[in-house]
Design a protein around this nucleic acid. Structure first.
Length: 801
RNA sequence: GCCGAAGUGGCGGAACUGGUAGACGCGCGGGACUCAAAAUCCCGUUCUCCUCGGAGAGUGAGGGUUCGAUUCCCUCCUUCGGCACCA
């Protein structure tokens, strides 16, 4: 009889649910804890697609494996339900985001249930529910009180016709992606979290089992650099321009300064200047470019303007002109010293006819080896550099820095590229920021006892230049918590990354009305042992979560210093080489495959496609292979081929399979696990399995085909769930064999193979190999000059002539 | 441009620390079963020669180290991912 996945899977899912098999007892210390976490999904209208399955199914297999290794596995699942798509959908259709969110979550819950995973969906956790965002607001207040939340004006990309802020990626060539009207820079007062205070602490990755690549990306993002701030006095005023550089060795070649068009000095320097008109024109032009365009490599010329003023190069005493240019941004000091040894400065100087001066060449000779065509940016020997001439520039670097510090011209400084985290959004579908503005008391945080600040219902979500929450008079008008006089609420909402930066703590104590999380449980369960999600979150979510966690740690609210001990990124599933998206119309739904082949087959096929971290292009061609494997496995256990004489040989294979699959699982190479199980089945088809061997085989399979394994566990007469049994161990003695297969090579080419006893010595092994006909043939072709013997592997001869 | 990863049969992919390249699966070819087909089972399947024992070539391209290289080194090409013209 053939295996019927449909009825069997339904049966076991119901049993698991009714027995509460996978409910982790968070308070129990009976078994070691294992927090197995997958990044929670956004409840989109696209529902669950193959990419989600590719992510969730192997993580579930991992969790089941850990459970069978004796761990108390906690594997929750919730929803990141605030965000822009629901709001945009509401603008289009008028359906309230809360409603679409609920519909999408219900649908996705059904789909996740169909996987038949251990995911605990009963926690019913979503970031848009008041009992969750109450605590997001509470975290805001914690940061506020620690001085880590502040307001400042920041430039944003603004579209006048859409009346809204645009992300850099929504700006296309200076125009709004949606309505094509011109985008302008506009200053808005916004809330920030001071993540920059934690730059140094965030650079500590000790004890984190994370992909090297992700750590490298975060380090790059934080961007620590050791340099020096140098003051350039103005030629005709008692003021100076401070520039930051990591290359003080080039100070003698500095022939001009470039400051950001937004630099506060620009207005002062321009006062009554004949250059004002041109500078304003260039400023206006640059203001149309977003940061990405301003820094874009291709298709964007360097533009700038002379400010009509000069500074003094403190090293040479020379008068040098000051410019503004698009490529200098108002970060750090907003000013750079420019010279001939930087390609960007070099090009700018050529365009605006600014004289250049060289101070480095490969051999110290006074010329640019590239003949003035491109900048010489490599290292070399200094010349025209005063007392430093003749030194290697890298060696002179710190000496010049010392010299600048001694003369009080410069001061060494560590810079970080990391900017503070802009958390306010002028959007409806997000957690309200718990701040009240009072005419007499000023900016007042909402008292913790008044949380949550409930998200109001509004009629119109259309952006009008300010948050739609401003429409609700009931929401906006409150009494000041301090003086009880009429006051107004902050109407901006929080970035959804704030909501997702602590959800793993809430899972541990979901819906507790009195606390964000229980410290006791957090100390038992944190950090998350295994965290799996897409690599696109390397710099945002994963950095923000670490930041918030470190703040909570310093406040004594959690013991762990890091939220995620081990991190793995799953690969991306594409369709015909393209990312799946509704707009491209290439979203593949898992439902029809699950319906046709069952969850076990579908999940194993996804795992069989290739290494988990690699991803791949979706193609349903091979799924029949996995379906055949499942049928065979079922058949072997249920209708055994009786052949007792051969069954003994199977012992070795079974133990080999345990070892192979175990090694592959720990590396998350699930494709190898499935392949090894297929090999076992193929051999077992011929030779049969004993009852004991069947018992082991079922347990190896269980994490990957949980329904089938449970069914077979029951059929073979076992009591209870296979997931309460332990994953099998192998006996190393069983893997040993008396003989080894040697490859016999002549001049590096394989000429024969030879089965030899493992205890054989070099001399007799070589004798045996020499007797082989095909080896003799090639040995005759010249003089034997070398014999190589690698135990249990190779016998090689080198012949010359 | 810089940083990172990858490139292996018709396809997805395997190969531990330099030691028999192509496991496993799909597809394809042949056979068994069948009135027939599906399903299932068995055999074969990198390419080119061949006297059917084998021989030669072969892991993006070209060099190098080595008895031996998918694996190590150099140069180059292509694809994917990341980025910030950060001074």
């Amino acid at each position: 009889m053939k295996y019927n996945p449909k009825s069997v899977e339904k049966k076991w899912q119901e049993r698991w649910r009714s027995s509460g098999l996978y409910k982790a007892d968070l308070k129990s210390d009976e078994k070691p804890h294992y927090y197995n976490l997958v990044m929670f999904p956004y409840p989109s209208g696209d529902k669950l697609h193959i990419g989600h399955w590719y992510n969730y199914a192997p993580v579930d297999s991992w969790g089941r494996y850990m459970r069978m290794q004796g761990y108390n596995v906690f594997q929750p699942m919730g929803f990141d339900s605030f965000g822009l798509p629901a709001e945009n959908y509401a603008i289009k259709t008028g359906i309230h985001p809360a409603e679409t969110t609920k519909v999408n979550i219900d649908k996705m819950k059904d789909q996740i249930s169909a996987i038949g995973g251990m995911y605990d969906l009963d926690l019913d956790m979503k970031t848009s529910s008041p009992d969750y965002y109450k605590w997001t607001q509470w975290i805001f207040l914690k940061l506020y009180k620690k001085g880590l939340a502040y307001k400042k004006a920041a430039p944003v990309n603004w579209c006048d016709s859409c009346c809204t802020v645009l992300a850099n990626e929504q700006v296309d060539n200076g125009r709004c992606e949606r309505c094509k009207s011109e985008v302008r820079r506009k200053n808005l007062t916004q809330w920030f979290f001071k993540i920059t205070d934690y730059a140094e602490r965030l650079l500590d990755y000790s004890n984190l089992d994370w992909p090297e690549k992700t750590i490298a990306m975060q380090k790059h993002w934080i961007g620590k650099s050791e340099g020096i701030e140098i003051d350039f006095p103005l030629a005709d005023a008692d003021a100076h321009v401070t520039c930051y550089t990591t290359r003080p060795d080039t100070i003698h070649s500095v022939t001009f300064l470039v400051i950001a068009p937004e630099h506060p000095l620009v207005d002062k320097l321009l006062k009554g200047s004949e250059y004002e008109k041109e500078v304003r024109r260039v400023q206006a032009e640059i203001s149309k470019q977003n940061d990405i365009e301003r820094m874009a490599e291709e298709g964007n010329a360097k533009i700038g303007a002379f400010l009509g003023k000069y500074a003094i190069n403190p090293a040479t005493g020379e008068k040098i002109p000051i410019y503004i240019a698009n490529f200098v941004l108002m970060y750090g000091t907003g000013a750079v010293m420019a010279d001939a040894h930087d390609q960007r400065d070099f090009e700018f100087a050529k365009k605006y006819d600014i004289p250049l001066k060289y101070v480095i060449s490969p051999d110290g000779s006074e010329r640019n080896p590239y003949e003035d065509e491109i900048a010489y940016t490599e290292d070399g020997i200094l010349f025209n550099a005063g007392e430093f001439s003749g030194m290697k520039n890298r060696e002179a670097l710190s000496k010049i820095a010392d010299w600048l510090e001694e003369k009080s011209i410069g001061k060494r400084k560590t810079h970080y590229k990391l900017r503070d985290w802009l958390i306010s959004r002028q959007r409806y579908w997000g957690a309200p920021i718990p701040i009240i503005y009072c005419q007499s008391c000023g900016e007042i945080p909402v008292p913790e006892s008044d949380l949550p600040v409930v998200h109001p219902h509004v009629e119109n979500y259309m952006p009008k230049g300010k948050s739609p929450l401003a429409d609700s008079a009931e929401f906006v008008n409150v009494n000041c918590p301090q003086c009880q006089q009429p006051a107004k609420r902050e109407v901006d909402t929080m970035d959804t990354f704030v909501c997702s930066s602590w959800y793993f703590l809430r899972y541990l104590d979901a819906h507790n009305p009195d606390k964000a999380w229980s410290k006791e449980l957090a100390d038992k369960w944190m950090p998350v042992n295994m965290y799996v999600g897409g690599p696109e979150h390397a710099c945002m979510h994963l950095l923000y979560a670490r930041f918030i966690h470190k703040v909570m740690n310093e406040l004594g609210l959690v013991e762990s210093k890091e939220p995620f001990a081990r991190l793995v990124h799953q690969g991306m599933i594409t369709k015909d080489g393209a990312k799946m998206s509704k707009s491209k119309g290439n979203v593949v739904s898992p439902d029809e495959f699950v319906d046709k082949y069952g969850s076990d087959v579908f999940r194993m096929y996804l795992m069989f496609m290739g290494p988990f971290t690699q991803g791949g292009d979706w193609n349903d061609k091979g799924i029949t292979g996995v379906a055949r494997f499942v049928d065979r496995f079922y058949k072997i256990i249920k209708n055994p081929i009786e052949n007792p004489s051969a069954v003994e040989d199977m012992d070795k294979l079974i133990h080999e399979t345990v070892k192979r699959t175990k090694d592959a699982i720990e590396k998350m190479h699930f494709n190898i696990v499935i392949a090894a199980l297929m090999e076992l089945v193929n051999t077992a088809m011929k030779k049969g399995l004993s009852e004991e061997q069947k018992n082991i085989a079922i347990r190896i399979l269980a994490p990957f085909a949980p329904h089938l394994a449970e069914e077979l566990w029951e059929i073979t007469g076992n009591k209870g769930s296979v997931f309460d049994a332990s994953w099998p161990d192998y006996d190393p003695k069983m893997l040993e064999s008396k003989t080894a297969t040697y490859a016999v090579q002549v001049n590096g080419k394989l000429r024969a193979t030879l089965e030899l006893d493992k205890s054989i010595d070099k001399k007799s092994a070589i004798e045996k190999a020499k007797e082989l006909e095909n080896v003799k043939k090639f040995l005759k072709k010249g003089d034997l000059v070398k014999e190589i013997f690698v135990p249990n592997k190779i016998i090689a001869f080198v012949v010359k002539g």
